[in-house]
Amino acid sequence: MRVLSGLQQPLPPLAIPEQQKPAQRPVRVRHAVVRERVGTRLYAIDGIRLVAALMVAVHHFAGTDRADRPGNAIWDRPVSDIMPNVFRLATYGWIGVEIFFVISGFVICMSCWGRTPRQFFVSRVIRLYPAYWFAVLFTTAVLVAVPGVWERLRPQEILLNLTMLQSGSGVGNVDGVYWTLWSELRFYLLFLAVVATGLTYRKVVVFCCVWGAAAMLAPVSGFPLLELVANPEGAWYFIAGLALYLMHRFGQDLLLWGILAMAWLMGQMELGVRIDEVEHVSSWRGSVLIFTVFLLVMVGVALGLTDRIRWKWLVTAGALTYPLYLMHYAAGTAVINRLRDTMDARLLVAVVIVGFMVLSWLVHRFVERPVAGLLKRGLDTSFARLRNAG
């Protein structure tokens, strides 16, 4: 199966890098001079990320039939019976994963422009690992304190999870949502090759076309390594984000619209596969409609239609997204399982989500920021020593 089934692979936000501020200067594209857009922070993207994270959380708690399967029961009866109106909407929340992949492609390209491979590597390490390390330890502690809902991994497997490379070693995830990080890591590895040569409009376009072709051929090639590297399940969402960023930086043109259209066409097929193999409860039409609306909103962001949105609180909202995504699923469903008879189901879901948002802010403030600073200083010193030794 191309998408893992059951609770081992629930559907993710991902670690989106801080938005950079590229300089404003003329750039020549296709024999026409266009002006790069001012590199101010795109507040709208922070808001979209939070919405996507909440979509995923509500889906996991109230929008999937996996939540009430025998042996993995979160609720004591089908969610569709407990809160039918919430269930009908929450069944589509898994699309937040695809939304995150598109945003990741957009913001990774933006944040890497003008950076060296060393800077790219350091930025990914300090962005991904601090909150992730905390999430692994936090989730493990919760599952020890609240046994019976999830099966815990062996100690050696939990320790391997701290590397974030467990999927490549055939080891399970402490929390099923970590599967998306494996997809992200493969994207970073591929894109690093472009970063190493210096990002330009032409190189990113060629990368999109080559990667798209590989992702298209991989499932029928009979080469597992090609399928692993090409990541056909996620490739076209990242490609859509890359094309959208090129629109934002250099302006729209027919080639970029063509890449985006191809990403939509391939993406809608992947949505159908996900519904058939995992979700089952949502419709293809509704899923494609939501995904299409999201892409249109991102086109608006790319073309500057949302530049007037400058609400400062959105920066905080964006900062909550990654810790919230990492911590909410296994720990949240275990808590719901224990408290499901204490209050109204809808209120319980709301309370749990708000609680994890508060915890996410605390993790961002007291874990991510200080640990990221320490890691950056340490890595910068190590690379400086390595350079001098060479």
Rank of each mutant, 00 (worst) to 15 (best):
R2I: 06
Q9R: 15
Q9E: 14
Q19I: 05
K21G: 14
R25D: 10
V27W: 03
V29W: 13
R35C: 02
Y43A: 08
L50V: 13
M55T: 03
V58L: 15
H59W: 15
H59F: 15
R69F: 04
P70R: 14
N72G: 08
P78V: 10
S80I: 01
S80A: 11
T91N: 03
T116Y: 00
Q119A: 12
Q119P: 00
I126T: 13
A131H: 02
A131P: 05
F134V: 06
V142E: 12
R154A: 15
Q156T: 03
I158Q: 10
T163K: 12
F191I: 10
F207H: 06
L228H: 05
V229W: 05
E233Y: 04
Y237Q: 11
A243K: 00
L244P: 00
F250L: 00
L254M: 09
L256V: 04
A261Y: 07
M262I: 05
L265A: 15
M266S: 08
I275D: 06
E279G: 01
W284I: 06
W284D: 00
R285K: 08
F291Q: 11
A302R: 03
R308N: 12
W311H: 11
T316A: 08
L326V: 13
A330K: 08
D341I: 00
A345G: 08
S360P: 00
F366Q: 14
L375G: 02
R377H: 14
A389I: 04
